[in-house]
């Protein structure tokens, strides 16, 4: 019961922030991802007891998936339910990739309670996203580096590269999609 109440608190704090993030508030979005990353870390850590090295990789993979598929969030649903469904999907996908067939047997309450546990420790991931980023096609890599790492605006990146603004946005999106696909196929452990 206690867990239910605090779970409700987490959701009621997260939701308005998430809705602002969905409508384009980058600062709110960043805060949401930070809050969620800490909880995802706790969630995966409890389920990957034998694979501690895989935890941070899975956190990063899930964050990428949340980002690429945030258009599938339905404002009528709790944000935590949407995030948990994706996190569980990613966990099952990891087991499947590693040849484990047993499904997850978590009762929903149990999941909600454990999802609450914050794990702020930010161990570096085993899989090297920077290296994967460098393997992207040059145009996608450039668009991501300019707008997402060097922090240029889309307009500035467009001027710098001579591509149109919409082309830059498309390259960023395609690059992140390809990165997410590469992340799935490169299993470091």
């Amino acid at each position: 019961m206690n867990a239910d109440a605090s779970h409700g608190d987490f959701e009621s704090g997260l939701k308005p922030l998430w809705l602002r993030a969905q409508s384009g508030d980058a600062a709110a979005y960043r805060l949401c991802l930070e809050l969620l990353a800490a909880r995802l870390r706790g969630f995966f850590k409890r389920r990957l007891v034998g694979l501690p090295d895989a935890v941070e990789d899975l956190v990063q993979e899930t964050l990428l998936a949340l980002h690429l598929r945030r258009g599938t969030y339905d404002p009528e649903l709790p944000v935590t339910a949407w995030v948990l469904a994706i996190a569980r999907h990613k966990l099952v996908d990891l087991w499947r990739r590693r040849g484990r067939r047993d499904a997850l047997h978590d009762p929903i309450d149990d999941v909600a309670e454990r999802f609450l546990a914050v794990d702020p420790e930010d161990g570096s991931a085993k899989r090297d996203l920077d290296a994967l980023l460098r393997e992207l096609p040059p145009a996608q890599q450039r668009a991501i580096v300019l707008t997402k790492i060097e922090g240029l605006s889309v307009a500035e990146a467009a001027t710098r590269t001579g591509a149109s603004e919409s082309a830059i946005k498309v390259q960023v999106h395609r690059g992140l999609k390809r990165l997410a696909a590469r992340v799935r196929s490169v299993d470091p452990t």
Binding site: A27, A37, S124
Partner: peptide, 23 residues
């Protein structure tokens, strides 16, 4: 890449989420 770097990267200039994507 550290997770906070990834978050920074995803959030920067992210823009609004696409609406009614499934439909």
């Amino acid at each position: 890449m550290r997770t906070d770097t990834l978050i920074e990267m995803l959030a920067r200039d992210a823009g609004p989420a696409p609406r009614a994507l499934a439909a």
